[in-house]
Structures are given as C-alpha cells and as structure tokens.
Amino acid sequence: MLSDHPYAVGSRVVVQGKRGPEVATVRGEAAAPDPKGRYGAILRGASADDLAQWEALHRKAEDLKWLLRARARERRLNAKLVAVEFTLDESLVTISYSADERIELGALVTELRDYTPARVNFAAIGPREQAQIIGTLGACGRENCSSTHLQDFAPVSIRMARDQQLPLNPEKLSGPCGRLLCCLQFEHTQYLELLRDLPRKNARVCHDSSGSCGKVTKLHPLAGTVDIQTEAGMLYDIPAAELRRAETQNPPPKGQERAAEAE
C-alpha cells in the first residue's frame, strides 16, 4: 500500500485497479489497506513508457466511445454509453453503460475487433457510478466524493439523515446523481459517537446554573449543545455537559415515550 512506498503526493504510479493495472496519481497516504486486497496496491512507479501508453489508450478510448455511440444509435439500442476504459496492458476494455431495461450489446463487440485486441467487458452502471465516472460538483462546492476518494458505494438510508439532525428535504439530501448523498454514510459513525453524549429528543432536562427546565427540541451534535424549550415557552441553546435529566414522578408509558421520540 501507499504507506509502504516512498512515492510523493502528485507522483504517477501504476496500481492494481479493479480490472487490471492502471496509472494513478498519488493524492495522499492511505488511511488503511483494502482488507480483501482487491485493488489499490501500488505495483511500481510509472515510467515514461507507462505514461505514453496510458495517454495513447485514453485517446483511443475516447475515439471508440464516440464510434460506439454512433453505432448504437444506428442499431436503435436504447442505452447510454458512459465510458470506455482500457487496462494499461490493453488486455481488457470495459464499456460502461446505463439502460432502463435489459438490452443486448453483443453486436457492438464486432465494431471493436478492428481497433483493439482487448477482451471486451460490458458493465451496466447506475446513477452513482455515472456521477463517479463523469465527475461533478457537490452541494459543498467541491468535486463529488465518488470521483475523488470513495472506492465503493455503501448503502445509504434516510435514517442516517435523521441521526445527523438534517431536514428531511429530498432536494438537499440528494446528490447530483439523484440518490442520497454518499457523505451521509461515511459521516454517520462520527455522528453516532457524538449523539451518545447528548440527551434524546423530547427528553426532560434541567440546567442548574440558570434554573431552567424543559423539553429537548433539537440536537446539535457537532456543537455538543441542545435546544430546550421551557414550560414558559422560552428557547435556550445549552451545552449538553451542563444538563441533567429532570426527575419526574409520573413518567409516561414506554410506548408513548418512544412514539414521542420518533416524531
């Protein structure tokens, strides 16, 4: 892995890609090796011949992409050809496409025989993979995570947005691909750690310094504070470390309490 090799940030290297050897740029030290050893290992520093071969294959892939798009239109194939990618040794060419239904693309293989000896692999991809290949800007103004550092797409659920106290607005929770933001998943563990030190929403708490007691209406995990609303209707933002759970003589039944927390 990267930590085992003295390659500077910005240098070009040959790595074991998902489908074969590829040329990559060192962006930083790897946080941890791939536990399954599937891809990402540095094979060697990229030589001048490696870089020349990679550039030539990239140009060939671009030409083939437009050729295949034209042939697909001629054959009335209802598919969007997103990318054509070679391995560094030109042993494999992968054609990534998206389609609303299952289609046969075998007829396009014959179009490639005159241009490359590589084995042809068609890969059906979804919206997230398209955003990863094409690249785009996220809501944060930076390049989308899938095109920069994410290696796999882990499942993302709306519960993660709830745990992060985000408004459940589909437009704000969706990325350029139209699916839930990938950052919800890889930030979720950190938010769960922060939530352990906060009272639950709708819990009754007291702040001894101010003498205020009330119900927790909102959590601020990153700031470590919560909003409490007193019986008088006043709203306070107070550090969670300064709060204690209010003692109640007649607590509500567990079913009602859980229902209130779920609201």
Rank of each mutant, 00 (worst) to 15 (best):
D163V: 04
L195I: 01
S157D: 09
A161I: 13
T148F: 03
L181G: 03
T217P: 01
Q165F: 01
M160A: 11
G211A: 11
D237C: 14
L184D: 01
V156H: 00
L166G: 00
A240M: 11
D237K: 15
A118N: 06
L137W: 08
E171I: 13
L112F: 03
C213G: 14
M160S: 09
C140T: 06
T148Y: 10
C177R: 00
C213Q: 06
T116H: 08
A240C: 06
L184M: 06
Q190S: 15
L112M: 14
L194C: 06
L192W: 01
E143K: 02
D152E: 14
G141D: 08
F186L: 14
A154C: 06
V120L: 05
I158C: 12
A139K: 12
P167H: 02
T116L: 05
L194T: 08
L173F: 09
E111N: 11
L219G: 00
T148N: 07
Q165S: 15
R200S: 12
Y115I: 01
C183G: 00
C206L: 04
S212D: 06
G178P: 04
L243F: 08
G141F: 00
L219A: 11
C183S: 01
L192P: 04
A139E: 09
V109S: 14
G135L: 05
D237H: 12
L181V: 00
G214Y: 02
S210T: 15
A118E: 05
N250L: 07
P167D: 06
A131P: 07
R119H: 11
L235I: 14
Q130K: 14
R128V: 12
A161Q: 13
C206W: 00
S212W: 07
S209I: 04
V109A: 15
I158Y: 08
R179N: 03
G138V: 09
A241M: 12
C140Q: 04
I134L: 15
C182E: 11
A131G: 10
S210Q: 06
D114N: 14
A203V: 00
L150S: 03
T110D: 12
P239I: 06
G224P: 08
A154E: 15
C140N: 07
A241G: 00
P239M: 03
